Structure formats: structure tokens, C-alpha cells
Computed example of a mutant assay.
Amino acid sequence: MKIKIKLFIPGILISSLYTSAFSQQVTRPLPKSRNAFIVIAHRGSHLIKPENTIASIMEAIALGADYVELDLRTTKDGYLVLLHNDHVDGLSNGKGLIKNLNFEAVKKLILIGRDSSLHHIASFEEALKACKGKINIYLDFKAAEVEKAYQAIKKEGMEHQVLVYVGDHSDYLSWRKTAPEMPLMSHLDHTITTKEALMEAMAKVPLEAIDNAPNETLLPVLRKMGISIFPDVQKASETVKDWKKVIKYGVQGLQTDHPEALIKYLRLAKIRVN
């Protein structure tokens, strides 16, 4: 589960902050996508292949997803790797916290797909090379050094192919300082229910994308501000009903555990042409 930044700063509501918030949005565009409606493959396409592996990334690319959501953590000796939980238990044949394991030990761990295929925990470098020029990255920044992550992105020339999800305010500040042009995404606090509160929060902590809207009355304001909304609908039992319920609000895309089925539905519904 993601930790949510509380984007609400109590105090005087200043409606003139709208212009400031809007100007922040247009200076950091999201990665370009071929499709107007975005499909984000949650942890890669992992119904068969293990999550966050190179195989799950390659399958998401083959299916035509626009983004692959990847979770970033750090080994004991400072290597960046893809892993959702803070431990390797259950996902692999190993045990322990990723932060307590050296990269050489991590590379030896085995992950087994539902088709009995064998995989390993991917390094961030491997993931970047697999995605470059093929699919955008929604980087869920779990536990890593911002400078090291950004340098890895820069090394591959992928500064315009990554959207970073930050769940911690210190990470937000660090990304803004280290990579001021990098688009950032987080979660709006449930207390933000008015236009004035939204504008004040965004003026204090500008974002380019969010994964929720606490109140549907804020949707027109968010659209006018140029903020994209990519709700999390991912679950094992996603249905067309789940997708329709969210799409009707005019969001810009969805994060899903079923990218193939979602893309098929979007094409049939004439929401997506590719």
C-alpha cells in the first residue's frame, strides 16, 4: 500500500493561488504517450510473470500499455532494484529485508512465474534499458536515494520518460531540488474538498498527476489546472463495471492489474484507438 502525502495546508484560503498552481503544472509535462487515455500496467503485466520483473515489463510493452508501474528499493550495498514489499519473502526463494541483502545475494534469488518460468529481481538499470523508447515508467519511489535514481535515469537519457510517485514529503522536496523538471505524482488528502483548498495545496506542493480526487466537484478544476488523474483500480477481480465507474468522471487513465483486458475494452468502447 502506498503512503500518502497529505496535500492540505491549513490556514487562509487564497484564491489567487490558482495562477501559481497552474503555471507550475505546464512547466513539467508528463511523458508523451500515443494514446489520449493512459493504461498503466501495475507492477508490469504480472498475471503470469512475477511482478516487477523484466518479463512483466516486456509483456506490458507487447500488450500496448502506455506506462509500467515499478517499485524502487535499495539493497544493503546501495544498488537500486525493483521490489514492492520491503522483504523478499514469498515473492522469491529467499528471506529477509531487501535493505539487509547485498546485490550479489539478491541476484541469486529465484522468482517463479505461474507458467513455471524462472526470473530474478530486476535492477533499476535493467528496467530502464528494457523500457527505453518503448514504454513510459510510473516510478513508485519506495525507498531509495533520489540523486542515485535520477542519475540512473539521466544515464539512459530517460528524463522525459518517467513520472515519479512520491509518498513522503521529504522525497517530494528532494526530487524537486534534485530534478526540478521531473513530473511528480501523489495522492490528494481526503480533507481537500473545495476549489480553494485544492488551489492552496497545489500552490504549496505542486503536482503534475494524482491517483485520486477526494470530491468529484474538483474534477473540472483539476482538468483546468492541467493535472492528470490516474486512479488505482488494480485488483485480482477487476471488471468492466469497475472501469466504467471511474472512466465516466473524465480521468486521463487507469492503473490496472489487467492491462490486456482493459485495452481490449477501451478499444471496443472507442475510448482508445491503438
Rank of each mutant, 00 (worst) to 15 (best):
P29V: 06
N136C: 06
Y249G: 07
A62I: 04
V146K: 04
E145H: 14
I5T: 11
K95V: 14
V251A: 11
K270H: 10
H120E: 07
E216L: 04
T53F: 02
K235R: 11
I61A: 06
K76D: 01
E208F: 05
A143Y: 15
M202E: 00
L139Q: 10
G44F: 04
H169S: 12
S117M: 09
L80D: 09
P180Q: 03
K204Y: 13
K99A: 15
S45R: 01
L111D: 00
S170R: 13
A203D: 03
F103L: 12
K129Y: 02
K76L: 09
D242A: 00
A261M: 15
N212K: 05
K241Q: 15
K142C: 13
A179W: 05
L70Q: 15
E196H: 03
I271M: 06
P183F: 05
I263W: 01
K224E: 14
L254Q: 04
K76V: 01
M199A: 04
F141A: 11
I229N: 01
V81K: 03
H190M: 10
K76W: 04
K241T: 10
Y138D: 14
G78P: 08
D77G: 08
A21N: 03
A149C: 13
K99V: 11
D257Y: 07
L72P: 12
I9R: 11
T191L: 12
A152V: 04
Q151P: 02
R114Y: 10
Q25C: 09
A213E: 04
Q25L: 11
D232Y: 10
I98R: 10
A149G: 07
I210M: 11
I61T: 08
G11V: 07
E238P: 04
I112G: 02
Y79S: 08
L83T: 03
L254I: 15
I229V: 12
A21L: 02
S45T: 09
K142M: 13
Y265W: 15
H187L: 06
I48T: 14
L17Q: 07
F103G: 00
V246T: 03
I3H: 12
K4V: 03
E145L: 13
I247V: 11
L118C: 05
V273K: 14
Y165D: 08
A236C: 00
Y172V: 10
L218N: 01
L188I: 14
K2W: 00
I9W: 06
C131W: 03
N274F: 13
L13K: 14
Y265V: 07
K108D: 15
H46A: 12
N215M: 05
K107N: 09
Q151H: 11
L7V: 05
D168P: 07
L207Q: 09
S174C: 14
T74M: 15
H119Y: 08
P214C: 01
A41V: 03
E51Y: 08
T27N: 12
I271C: 00
L82T: 07
S15T: 12
G113A: 13
Q24G: 01
E59Q: 14
A203H: 06
H120N: 08
K49A: 15
L222F: 07
M158D: 08
L163V: 05
E216P: 08
I112A: 06
S116I: 01
D171K: 12
I61G: 05
A122P: 02
P31Q: 02
T217F: 01
I192G: 01
L173C: 15
K2E: 12
D115Q: 10
P29F: 09
E260R: 15
V39R: 02
L111T: 02
P180F: 05
N35I: 02
V26E: 11
F37G: 05
K108M: 14
K154N: 09
P10L: 05
Y79V: 09
